[in-house]
């Protein structure tokens, strides 16, 4: 009994342990790794992934998936950038609407939420598998990004907006504040509210949840909406950091995000996992990326290593769940 308990504890902290070992290894191999500026750099880089992956975690907990986050991120970033830069002109009425940073950002987040809700709606209303519905959204949203930007970056967005991605507040980069706030909210939702319990229950057994009176479709739509909104926040951070909305921003971000979720111990079949696990997963990926760059490993090898880490994480996870 005691042994089993210890093993349980060990399993719960396995990704933290992996992260710790990774950091120890890197600080021995590279003297730059442990510098304050490098660590803030890592944190700033992963804050986008943490935003997206927090939403992804909620979705995966319901046994769903969202492949469209990268494209949604790009579209929302582009919409915010476009509105900030040129506003909306309606020539027929001789009308021009300008946008403040807040207005443009909200428009971006609103777009993300709407696209997420649309994902949830097609999945619940037409019973389209999440993989397919969000794959379609991946393509559609990327297409609209190209249409909106006409294929060119939208740059020169003004200092106020740049604060979002590059500023500091109380000695901590602003993106880190934002992602931390999102994580705290998500942890609260998953552990302390009805919605959170419903999310886990639906992933654990959708049929039993429905029979228990849980409005399964509503919960799913909410979860995909949150996913879309958080992808949009990621879009704001990316656009702000680069001072430019790139039409091909966020390509393959969904993969990094799913990787963070999986490495963090959330089961792709739903019902098991946590937001904090995903944060650890994102940290592991971020630190690994950073370390490989510091060690001058070729980008091609970086991809190979990252892939193998994901595979290893899932294999360990499978082995654990078999022991249950």
């Amino acid at each position: 009994m005691n042994l089993a308990l210890d093993k349980d504890k060990l399993l719960r902290f396995q990704s933290l342990i992996a992260l710790f070992l990774l950091c120890v290894g890197l600080s021995i191999l590279s003297d730059k790794f442990l510098s304050v500026s490098n660590l803030w750099n890592v944190m700033r880089q992963i804050s986008v992934n943490i935003c997206i992956s927090t939403g992804m975690t909620l979705i995966v907990l319901t046994a769903g998936i969202d492949l469209s986050v990268g494209s949604v991120l790009a579209l929302c970033g582009a919409i915010t950038a476009g509105l900030l830069k040129s506003g909306i002109e309606i020539p027929s009425d001789n009308l021009y609407i300008g946008f403040t940073v807040l207005g443009a950002s909200l428009a971006g987040i609103l777009t993300g939420s709407a696209l997420g809700a649309l994902n949830g709606w097609t999945i619940t209303k037409f019973k389209v598998p999440p993989f397919v519905a969000t794959l379609a959204m991946l393509t559609v949203a990327r297409g609209f990004t190209m249409l909106w930007t006409k294929g060119f970056p939208i740059s020169g967005l003004g200092d106020t907006f740049l604060f979002l991605g590059t500023g500091w507040f109380l000695g901590v980069p602003v993106p880190v504040w934002i992602s931390a706030l999102i994580v705290v909210l998500a942890v609260f939702i998953t552990t302390k509210t009805r919605l959170g319990k419903y999310i886990y229950a639906i992933g654990g057994n959708e049929s039993a949840s429905r029979l228990s009176g849980i409005q399964v479709n509503r919960v799913k739509i909410i979860v995909y909406t949150i996913g879309g909104a958080l992808a949009a926040v990621g879009g704001l951070l990316v656009t702000s950091r680069l001072d430019s909305a790139q039409p091909n921003a966020g390509v393959s971000y969904e993969l990094d995000s799913i990787a963070a979720v999986v490495i963090g111990g959330t089961s792709l079949s739903g019902g098991r996992g946590s937001v904090l696990g995903t944060v650890q997963g994102a940290l592991i990926i971020g630190v690994l990326n950073n370390g490989l760059v510091l060690l001058n490993v070729s980008p091609f090898w970086q991809q190979v290593v990252k892939g193998l880490v994901i595979l290893l994480a899932v294999i360990i996870d499978k082995a654990n769940s078999k022991n249950d």
Partner: peptide, 21 residues
């Protein structure tokens, strides 16, 4: 097993699932 319980969740969560509100 299929429709009654969320087997992977604990007794408490299963009992409370209908009345969480």
């Amino acid at each position: 097993k299929k429709d009654g319980l969320v087997l992977g969740m604990d007794v408490k969560t299963n009992i409370c699932l209908t009345t969480l509100a």
